[in-house]
């Protein structure tokens, strides 16, 4: 009998604890992000789709079509890189850079492998498309312009690397 009453009382106490937790939350501010109007504040290192930004100083892309990124890509998402051909000789500059967004798994390995910091993962995240063909992108002719803190981050990256290269040469 005592156990019976004890059971009831401990039960009610534990239920009240739960109720108090939910009651406390009634007075807290909602945590929802009102998505289409309010955009999330993305992290600097956020990995959206791959882009080949235009270097604002040179007003040109930095890619030399060295193919390292294509070799390092785990599932062959970088399909084709073509060099610019001048006077019958290939120059170290990309004319065509075909990237398959459909198979890309945003692992960032190509970006890390690139010795010239020519490519970077952008902030774009709503990437769905009705057509599979539209997921195969040509990055050179896109002439992508980075903005905001991502641009600064990207700039600092290749500046560091040029400094490092100079150090190595010395």
């Amino acid at each position: 009998m005592i156990k019976y009453i004890k059971n009831i009382i401990t039960g009610i106490i534990s239920l009240c604890e739960g109720l108090s937790v939910t009651l406390k939350h009634v007075f807290r501010k909602p945590i929802t992000l009102q998505y289409p109007e309010q955009k999330p504040d993305l992290q600097l290192r956020y990995r959206g789709r791959l882009v080949m930004p235009v270097d604002p100083e040179k007003n040109d892309i930095r890619c030399t079509a060295c193919m390292i990124c294509a070799k390092v890509c785990p599932n062959h998402s970088i399909l084709e890189i073509e060099k610019v051909i001048e006077d019958g000789k290939p120059k170290p500059k990309a004319k065509k850079y075909i990237y398959n967004l459909g198979t890309c798994m945003f692992c960032n390995l190509c970006v890390e492998a690139c010795p010239f910091a020519a490519i970077i993962m952008s902030d774009e995240y709503a990437l769905a498309n009705e057509d599979k063909e539209k997921l195969i992108l040509e990055l050179v002719s896109e002439k992508y312009n980075l903005t905001g803190k991502k641009l600064n981050w990207w700039k600092s990256k290749f500046k560091d690397e040029t400094i490092n290269k100079e150090k190595v040469q010395k």
């Binding site: 939350h25 009634v26 501010k29 909602p30 945590i31």
Partner: peptide, 8 residues
């Protein structure tokens, strides 16, 4: 429900 779950 939204009130209890800190959403709108």
């Amino acid at each position: 429900a939204a009130k209890f779950q800190v959403r709108y």
